[in-house]
Design a protein around this nucleic acid. Structure first.
Lengths: 244, 244
DNA sequence: CTCCCTAAATGGACTAGACGAATTTACATA
DNA sequence: TATGTAAATTCGTCTAGTCCATTTAGGGAG
């Protein structure tokens, strides 16, 4: 297979929608956040193109957090993205570090048999029971992420009742079970928003999301929990601090 | 805290393309990587929908690394994604840790006035000169990322000549200038691929990318370089190891 | 003036089709 | 048999439109 055939003079022709996108980007940069941009139908006329093409350009700019669309109202210049640190602390502490008040809405909490991935991550035998706790994370009342935690039932008996009373899962683990994760592996990838997550986070199905997987461990290497969180890609930039 | 504050039975109706996507996902899971999936026009018929809708579903699956499209040939089940660790080491070392041989192709190297962002990041006065070095990063001959580094001209005189001879920028900094970054802030966000980056990485304009920004510092806090790297979102999952 | 209802405007989803570009296949020819 | 060329196939891009859902603005009733 001929990979890497000297990509020297690569200067591809841009698709038409990309020219529209660049035009809009210039417009955006000349405006303030909150400003209204022309309607899709106006843009089709002034840019001599189809609405599909205009929507493709607008869609990418929305996905990159530069524009916000509001059905029935219009398309607006977005506020700048928020940065969100990746640290070995709880969501509650991370929010506080950013000056927000964190809260959570319990969406569902159930006892279920572990899927293959959850069982492997938690180092459980196939078919073992896990708690599957789904929460909507809020910072200052704004939905931030949809978070699904998986924990071993055998290891944390009665966890669901404790979680219903507390906001911080980490605090429950520490106070009720005496367990404190000390390391974690955090994975990051891009995904398109499923309908449910999109609705919960107030965005559209298919919009780009950042999916964080957190796999946390005790000091002796025992896995504690495995969490998958969906964040809106148009709202957040993640920041990791690294040292040698 | 509002636990269980009636999430309003959010169970949105899925768009039609999403049903198509789920149908394809089942199909994908029943096949091996490399297998051919039905053509777009076949799917249009069997799923009783338009090609646009089929393509929207296929497009998301391609963006998530589940499918690969090849113009003129067909659409295939993709190989699993690769994980890429975020560490305070050079690309060269990261690649070696993953069992790859890293290399780089110099795309451009120029002396230019710093943009507002670059000047701020490198703590330079407005209008100061920076080197802008653009490289295509390869792992085992496969293009992995397009990387644009910014470094102060005043601080690293003659850098371009040194870089032309070496593959590792970090080694040049250490050996020729005696500087070794000891900490870095790495930002991660999602963006749509611009035509140039898409072509260099062998993907389509507009496909989802992970954009890493690396801002590295010396022990005394002086910024050393500011780098922006474009990775294909359909190929890589980033992993950060965190400790308390 | 206040309130409610309707109409207009806007983005959201989808369709059917045209043409182009890249690849693969089939076939004619040497 | 080997090779070059044309045709068919496949994905890539774009168009022009339909219909729906939501929001906003305006007008009428009280």
């Amino acid at each position: 297979m001929a990979v890497n055939a000297a990509p020297d003079q690569i200067e591809p022709r841009a698709p038409k929608y990309y020219l529209v996108k660049r035009h809009l980007l210039e417009l955006i940069e000349s405006l303030e956040p909150g400003a209204l941009v022309p309607t899709e139908r106006e843009l089709t006329v002034t840019l001599a193109t189809s609405r599909t093409t205009v929507r493709q350009a607008l869609g990418e700019l929305v996905g990159e957090g530069r524009l916000v669309r509001r059905q029935g109202s219009g398309t607006y210049v977005a506020e700048p993205k928020m940065t969100w640190p990746l640290q070995m602390t709880s969501f509650t502490e991370q929010a506080a570090a950013n000056g927000f008040v964190a809260s959570a809405q319990l969406l569902s909490a159930e006892r279920a048999r572990a899927t293959g991935e959850a069982a492997a991550r938690l180092r459980l035998p196939p078919g073992a029971y896990v708690y599957r706790i789904e929460r909507l994370r809020l910072a200052d009342e704004t939905p931030m992420a949809v978070e699904t935690s998986h924990l071993s039932v055998a290891r944390f008996p009665g966890l669901i009742k404790a979680v219903r009373r507390a906001s911080s899962l980490y605090r429950v683990l520490a106070e009720s079970y005496g367990i404190k994760p000390v390391s974690a592996e955090e994975t990051i990838e891009t995904r398109a928003a499923p309908p449910r997550e999109a609705a919960l986070l107030g965005t559209d199905t298919g919009s780009p999301m950042l999916v964080l997987g957190r796999h946390s461990f005790e000091a002796d290497g025992t896995p504690v929990e495995w969490v998958r969180s969906w964040y809106r890609g148009d709202r957040y930039t993640f920041v990791a601090k690294l040292t040698v």
